[in-house]
Design a protein around this nucleic acid. Sequence first.
DNA 1: AGTTAAGCGAGACGGTACGTCAAGTCTTCAG
DNA 2: CTGAAGACTTGACGTACCGTCTCGCTTAACT
Lengths: 210, 210, 210, 210
Amino acid sequence: MRSRTTPDTPRTGRPRSAEADEAILEATRAALVELGWSKLTMGDVATRAGVAKTTLYRRWANKNELVVDAVAVLFDQLELPDLGSLQADIEHVVLQFAGLLERPETKTALMAVVAESTRDAPLRERIRASIVDRQKRLVLDGRRRAQERGELPSEREPLTADAIDDLIFDVVAGAVVHRALVSAEPVDAQWVARLSALLVGGLGAVAALG
Amino acid sequence: MRSRTTPDTPRTGRPRSAEADEAILEATRAALVELGWSKLTMGDVATRAGVAKTTLYRRWANKNELVVDAVAVLFDQLELPDLGSLQADIEHVVLQFAGLLERPETKTALMAVVAESTRDAPLRERIRASIVDRQKRLVLDGRRRAQERGELPSEREPLTADAIDDLIFDVVAGAVVHRALVSAEPVDAQWVARLSALLVGGLGAVAALG
Amino acid sequence: MRSRTTPDTPRTGRPRSAEADEAILEATRAALVELGWSKLTMGDVATRAGVAKTTLYRRWANKNELVVDAVAVLFDQLELPDLGSLQADIEHVVLQFAGLLERPETKTALMAVVAESTRDAPLRERIRASIVDRQKRLVLDGRRRAQERGELPSEREPLTADAIDDLIFDVVAGAVVHRALVSAEPVDAQWVARLSALLVGGLGAVAALG
Amino acid sequence: MRSRTTPDTPRTGRPRSAEADEAILEATRAALVELGWSKLTMGDVATRAGVAKTTLYRRWANKNELVVDAVAVLFDQLELPDLGSLQADIEHVVLQFAGLLERPETKTALMAVVAESTRDAPLRERIRASIVDRQKRLVLDGRRRAQERGELPSEREPLTADAIDDLIFDVVAGAVVHRALVSAEPVDAQWVARLSALLVGGLGAVAALG
DNA sequence: AGTTAAGCGAGACGGTACGTCAAGTCTTCAG
DNA sequence: CTGAAGACTTGACGTACCGTCTCGCTTAACT
């Protein structure tokens, strides 16, 4: 996750302030909480961070890239402790993810930058690198553990395994986001239990397809 | 789906032009295709529709409400023909939905208005009424047919049935959106087959929870 | 003196506010007094005039054109009452002109726009039309009266007469401006008397050149 | 003409580069020619001179002081060769001065810095010291020679003589500048002949005032 | 048939934010 | 301490849209 343009030869001249970087990202998150994505302005973020607007633009090309970086770090807090069963592991991570999506800074920002990314390839790539791909580890870890426990068969072909991992990732992330943001209904224990049951119950059928 | 502010007393004076309405929505879709949501401007839509800006604002309060109405009608084209099995029905509707999300006007608009709706309750309500709730019919019809065919047990409690319908809706819609817009991977036949297998295979486990 | 772009067909649409025009010019003069030309900003003028910046730019292309219009009207106040002799007439108008140049709004603005006009042909033309050419009337009137009084011979050729009028204009205006702004010395009665004497005394020699 | 801040104790450390000084002034003149005063930037001058911005600011407080120094040296090129008569001497120097004002670097710079000086006393003083007062020598020399030739009486009081010198200076410089920059008409031989005739013819009348 | 109230196109209006640019200062490293 | 490099704060720039308003004109429904 390279958050800014890294100069190739930053030999001479006054170096960029490292404090400014963190102050800006923190100010961005604060502005997202108070104003939401669409009312967040670069000038306001600069003021909050105690920094000039030009300093923002020296580091990030536009609002969306800044917001992605500001929010990305939050997603790295997701963890997958070993709770003893696949179903429990899934429920835990889904609840964690739902908690993250309830935070106003993620709720307002995530969909907005994804929407923008449909027309902005560099942004799409940045989202993928900074957020999406980094969280696939959760699926990989969960599957590996389930195989070690014997809950899932382990002799599958690597290509198929990857495809199923991707499917699970899209289903879990998509379902939670849709529930939370589109349907605007709570992601409570009962809903999580049903989703987990669906996944655990259906995985066998998927694997059987080959 | 009330597409505009309906005046309470439309008694006297010149009536609103019905042609203008459709021209505006069509112009909005065209602008979405060419410019995307974030670069679409009200002035541009008005010009494309051959209409004054005033005329737009007399009918829609702002850009988001207009975009929701312009896009909503596209979602009504989704159908669920009886293909003989639950798995086939699901695969069919998922492919149709994916096709819809690949259209540039929906791709750019859907996530954007949902993002805005996280901070705008009336907009959230309009999205729900114009788009989301209207498509739940697909899940209801599919489930009813599967029960008629005997693929699913029919004696479930109504409340649980509703909850499972909602779950399926969020999983299907969420997964497809996430695959198409976030992961930015193609929703092809193989992926659809795996998703359908997961659902059909998992439904039993979910129903067993009661 | 066309103070703004006059649309050829201002048939439709909301008409421009006439009050805004005068408020802006008045605000410009006030800003010149307080801040001088180089620290005058378009935003500040707009604020003082209680008008949006866009309204300024809709009427004037840039700061210099605005300043020329704001100042031009002041030069129209110069008059040439008949005081009975050429020398007295000259002294009177020179003192009036010096008084005008002592006003802070003219002092700071006149040289600045002339400086800019060396690189901006449209501005040069506007200055000529709005300020310079309009004041040549003073020279014409003064000469005509002197001829009527018999102080100057009247049978000169028109072309030569024009050339001498121009010379007198440049000498009087140039000398006063140079004294006031470059030498920064007072234009007092004694200096004016000497300048007038120089002119009246020298005019015969110039006319003799043919 | 002290062109820069002279450090009182230039004892220790690396000495300032003398070459840099001339490179900067030359770069300033080049920038004036290409861009004019208002578009000349300190950063651009520094780049042209192959020097850091810091180096500029260590020597000149701001853009205007730099420009005055860059241009002042050009005015020192004016000379007053003895051509045998007052009229000829005046015509010669006026043509020289007009030639100087036609150069793009002086044309754009002179009026601009004078305009700025109306609100900036130190700048006014610098202009006076570097440019204005230095050229009064031309008037003094011309007058002295005319007296030696017997074209002008020599027994005048010193104070009156000074005042007349100043008047002539303002009239000549002012008239030429006004003709060249405000009226934007050529300073050709005929115009110069008329101006000279006016002066020579009028001087007697002025001297008669006492 | 005439009145009348709303619709309509046009475009000016007060705002807010944009992204850029230059001024002049500060910080680092190299000599 | 000088000097090059370049990051920094500040503040204005001129533009683009927003959503509102004010015109003069048009149009159908109700007298």
